[in-house]
Design a binder for these strands. Structure first.
Length: 280
DNA sequence: AGCTACTCCTGGTAGC
DNA sequence: TGCTACCAGGAGTAGC
């Protein structure tokens, strides 16, 4: 499932083809992808606008729009489980799973493909307000080990659901949380406030290292869904130590990796490296 | 505040 | 072979 590294890869690869382009038309094949906006309103908001910038915030892809050089809101794209965003060289997107497509100048098409329809392609007049609920960027300068320490100490939740909470920290998903926690030998069900200072410092470093390494590999493709905008799979899945490896030996200690459910999420951990907390 | 359950969706797969 | 039942899973929401 696309998380921060996959979204960052998407942004980097589509940016050159999009910045400066003008939206000439729209095609909406699945109305709910617009997130509740009426199609006519969507058309009015985007057609004729120029894409001034392409950026990422957490797992959101933002296409900033302007008209006559004046800010005109943004498109906020969320890939969720199976979304893909890419620029079609042709005028007509042929893939049956394309849910929204925008006709651009120079004869190109921006296509949003999404098999399971969980993704969103929404217009917002106020992108900063739209994103205001999000916590810090894991790779941003404001996210320091000290900030993480103080934030964790103030909470009384299991560490994994907390790291998945986008209002707490914005950009991690199931894969990179499991991988980060294994690297620092912390069980996913440990209470956030019980982590030691050393563990929090290590966790902060592990999160950044895992994300940066995954970006370098253009993300992870463990199933048929995630591909870069150029159609290539990422390769960070080859670096997984626990995710999707139930029954296989832990690369650190050799004990079998376990799969269990935490907060309705499939979770992978080595119970020898990551000691379960005492039942409470 | 934090927990669980539920919803949205479909392709893939297990079971028969 | 062909059918049905069930599952995964980000994020939002409701209820406790």
């Amino acid at each position: 499932m696309p998380e921060l590294p996959e979204v960052e890869t998407t942004v980097r690869l589509i940016r050159p083809a999009l910045v400066g382009r003008t939206i000439q038309g729209e095609e909406v094949r699945w109305a709910r992808t617009l997130g509740g906006m009426r199609r006519a309103a969507f058309r009015k908001a985007v057609v004729g606008a120029r894409i001034s910038a392409v950026r990422r915030r957490a797992k959101h892809i933002l296409l900033d729009l302007e008209r006559d050089g004046v800010d005109a809101g943004a498109l906020a794209v969320h890939l969720r489980m199976t979304g893909r965003l890419y620029v079609d060289p042709s005028r007509e997107p042929l893939d049956p799973y394309v849910r929204v497509a925008l006709a651009l100048d120079r004869g190109r098409t921006l296509s949003f493909l999404d098999v399971r329809k969980f993704g969103r392609f929404v217009y917002t007049p106020d992108p900063e307000g739209f994103l205001a609920h999000l916590g810090p960027e894991p790779l941003g300068t404001e996210f320091t080990a000290q900030v993480l320490w103080e934030s964790l100490r103030a909470r009384r939740r299991m560490i994994k659901p907390l790291l998945l909470d986008q209002t707490f920290l914005a950009g991690l998903g199931n894969i990179y949380v499991d991988e980060s926690l294994h690297r620092v030998r912390v069980h996913p069900q440990r209470r956030a406030e019980t982590l030691t200072r050393a563990q929090v410092t290590a966790l902060h470093a592990a999160i950044q290292e895992v994300l940066l390494a995954a970006i370098e590999r253009q993300g992870s493709s463990f199933d048929k869904f995630y591909r870069t905008p150029e159609g290539q799979p990422g390769s960070y899945q080859h670096e997984f130590r626990v995710y999707g490896k139930a029954g296989q030996p832990c690369p650190v200690c050799g004990a079998p990796i376990r799969r269990f459910v935490v907060g309705q999420r499939g979770t992978h951990a080595c119970l020898r490296c990551q000691r379960p907390p005492r039942a409470r």
